[in-house]
């Protein structure tokens, strides 16, 4: 089995699906001949031609708006938004249009568009190349939100997303695009949406995370382990729909919860997780739920390591929560 990084896995998923389904088209800024600024669409223009892999003018509202039209005509567009930080000009098309088309038309018009976008910090990108806007989309009825942490999941989840009938915001953890490597089967396989994965079994407390934060949390667990702590780590993989069963099963076992994400703390996805756990498993809790998140400031440039939840910060939260 080849060992690939996330970029290679995403690229392979796109190639497999474009070979399998002639309705799949890719559009976005610099995704054609150049293969995307992160090279996720490398080689696809050469294999499938400019009708199916094409560069657009530099306007995100046009990319998503036109993708909606293509989906209405029966295509399966997979637009790329170059950085999640640039998604806001398309916000109206995503939140008011894409998410609501099926519902507002009484089920007449499904629009299965999968928006791929790299997100997250740790690449010295400052405000506009580092943000984690997942909560905006998880808060929007009609959208699925998927965030893989590793190459195997990236390929399987992307294939599931494109084959599904719903719009998906597929956020790729760009900090670990190349750093996260793993064995990836060469052929076709899928990872179902809405299923979390226990990446480290533990007895003492539950760490909930997704995307690049999974790697931070695994490192944090290794640090904590040295001091005798035994955390369980759950990679959510899909934020919406959330796999509440896997989360609650773990929480009922451990009674303690740490949530980690890069996005700002207030109204971040961790707030939803904490509320859900409080609603459904309060009596299992033996400590306050702890959130390790980005601060409620714009994403900084020079001080990004202060801002980003680090293994040390997560490890501290693990210890404090376990000892509460």
């Amino acid at each position: 089995m080849p060992v690939w990084n996330i970029i290679q896995a995403v690229n392979d998923a796109l190639r497999i699906e474009m070979r399998r389904d002639p309705r799949v088209v890719i559009l976005g800024e610099d995704v054609g001949k150049f293969g995307g600024v992160f090279r996720a669409t490398t080689g696809l223009f050469d294999e499938f031609g400019g009708d199916r892999v094409f560069d657009t003018p530099l306007a995100e509202a046009g990319i998503i708006g036109s993708a909606i039209g293509m989906a209405l005509y029966g295509l399966r567009p997979v637009p790329e938004i170059q950085f999640a930080d640039f998604i806001y000009p398309a916000y109206d098309q995503i939140v008011n249009e894409l998410a609501k088309f099926r519902y507002r038309s009484g089920g007449q018009y499904p629009v299965p568009v999968v928006i791929r976008t790299p997100y997250g910090g740790g690449i010295r990108g400052g405000h506009y190349h580092s943000q984690s806007p997942e909560a905006y989309f998880a808060h929007t009825p009609g959208l699925k939100v998927v965030i893989p942490s590793n190459p195997y999941d990236a390929k399987g989840l992307l294939l599931s997303s494109i084959r599904g009938e719903d719009p998906v915001i597929f956020m790729e953890p760009k900090r670990v695009y190349r750093a996260a490597k793993g064995e990836v089967p060469e052929g076709d396989y899928t990872v179902p949406l809405g299923k979390a994965k226990v990446v480290r079994e533990g007895s003492q407390l539950t760490v909930l995370c997704y995307g690049a934060m999974v790697h931070t949390c695994v490192e944090a667990a290794q640090l904590a382990e040295k001091d005798g702590f035994d955390p369980e780590i759950i990679d959510l993989r899909t934020l919406l729909p959330l796999d509440t069963e896997t989360v609650l099963e773990s929480v009922r076992k451990t009674g303690r919860v740490v949530i980690a994400h890069e996005a700002p703390k207030t109204c971040g996805y961790g707030a939803e997780l904490a509320a859900m756990i409080a609603e459904k498993a309060l009596m299992s809790l033996e400590a306050p739920i702890s959130r390790v998140a980005g601060f409620d400031t714009p994403f900084p440039y020079t001080l990004e390591n202060e801002y980003m939840p680090s293994p040390d910060r997560v490890a501290l939260a693990i210890k404090q929560t376990a000892q509460f």
């Binding site: 509202a61 046009g62 998503i64 708006g65 036109s66 993708a67 909606i68 039209g69 293509m70 989906a71 209405l72 005509y73 029966g74 295509l75 098309q93 249009e97």
Partner: peptide
């Protein structure tokens, strides 16, 4: 408007 243009592109 962009949706209609996209549909035409799709055709």
């Amino acid at each position: 408007i962009p949706q209609a243009v996209g549909l035409a592109m799709g055709a």
